[in-house]
């Protein structure tokens, strides 16, 4: 038990994925150090594609490196930077190196990054990218031209239950699943009632059955980090009472961890949730601590099924 693609189907135990750090140079040893930090605790890692519209080492190069180092990469692909030709070339090229898990995103706009003068592309959008990935998985390019020795791809997508219009998010999740997505990673959010309503809607329309839903849990250090996300990261809203809780705590670092722990436990308590995705901005041993406290992931695979009943 344990391969990410098998868990997406079997749901034998809660899945744990995490955000792999972006890199700006160094060598394969740098990648290997990061792989070693995550490998015992997660089923797969997201390899980001110029996150928040900042250039970094490419998603293709990082996904290949992580795969060769023995950790399962989920190669994110955004629509902002490349047209349909370049995106298909990246997916097929990565697949030739054994990368088979992909996640399709529309992507933050160039104005969110440090080079807002760049041309935005958006030749295709997120749901179209999911469908094109399925076409590649089935053995042809979008043009209809055949691929040789293609592999079946595990395709995922993202959704933001915390952004309006709420009822459209549920429908959009269904659209992505109908287009080929088998897992959905959710945007960061702190409004429990919105997550609950989204998951309930996804239960009603069969998305929870047809795709593994993974809400994101974010490990931060301070109220300042929450304020930054609220003011500067597109699509993320952090309510004032959440920021105040951390700001007024005697030990903000520990309170920030407890916030993430409660967030994870709440998400896992919802019927239909298949696991969690962890974004770590603490860069300490908190990922290890979180999966240990909640007894999640490959390190606790023998305790399968025990965590879904935990509550915050």
């Amino acid at each position: 038990m344990g391969a990410f693609d098998e868990l997406v189907v079997s749901r034998e135990r809660p899945i744990v994925t995490a955000e792999f750090p972006s890199m700006d140079g160094g060598d394969l040893d740098t990648v290997a150090e990061a792989v070693d930090r995550f490998q015992p605790y997660v089923d797969a890692v997201n390899i980001t594609d110029n996150p928040a519209a900042h250039a970094h080492a490419s998603n293709v190069s990082m996904a290949i490196a992580v795969k060769q180092l023995g950790l399962e990469p989920i190669m994110q692909v955004v629509c902002r930077d490349k047209n349909r030709l370049a995106i298909q070339a990246d997916v097929v090229g990565a697949q030739m190196h054994g990368v088979t898990s992909f996640c399709a995103l529309t992507g933050d706009d160039v104005t969110a990054g440090d080079e807002p003068e760049a041309r935005r592309v958006f030749d295709i959008d997120g749901p179209q990218l999911v469908s094109i990935m399925r076409t590649l998985s089935d053995g042809t390019y979008l043009s209809g031209r055949s691929l040789k020795h293609h592999r079946e791809l595990l395709i995922g997508a993202v959704e933001n239950p915390f952004a309006p219009p709420a009822h459209v998010r549920v429908r959009r999740a269904r659209m992505k699943v109908d287009s080929g997505a088998r897992f959905l990673q959710l945007q960061i959010g702190y409004e429990r009632e919105k997550l609950e309503a989204f998951v309930e809607g996804c239960g009603d329309n069969g998305v929870c059955r047809d795709a593994a839903i993974l809400p994101t849990v974010i490990l931060t250090k301070s109220a300042g980090a929450l304020r930054f996300m609220d003011s500067s990261v597109p699509g993320i809203h952090v309510p004032g009472d959440v920021i105040d809780r951390i700001a007024s705590a005697s030990d903000p670092l520990e309170e920030s961890y407890q916030l993430a722990r409660e967030q994870a436990a709440h998400a896992l308590s919802l019927p239909g949730i298949a696991g969690i995705h962890i974004t770590d901005f603490r860069h300490d041993d908190s990922v290890h601590r979180l999966v240990h406290d909640l007894r999640l992931g490959p390190a606790f695979s023998s305790e399968a099924g025990t965590t879904h009943t935990q509550t915050a």
Binding site: A112, G126, Q128, P164, P165, R171, R172, P234, G235
Partner: peptide, 14 residues
């Protein structure tokens, strides 16, 4: 601005 044909992106503000 992103010329999306299939619904809102995840960046819509509250």
């Amino acid at each position: 601005p992103k010329t999306l044909r299939n619904g809102p992106c995840g960046g819509v503000a509250v």
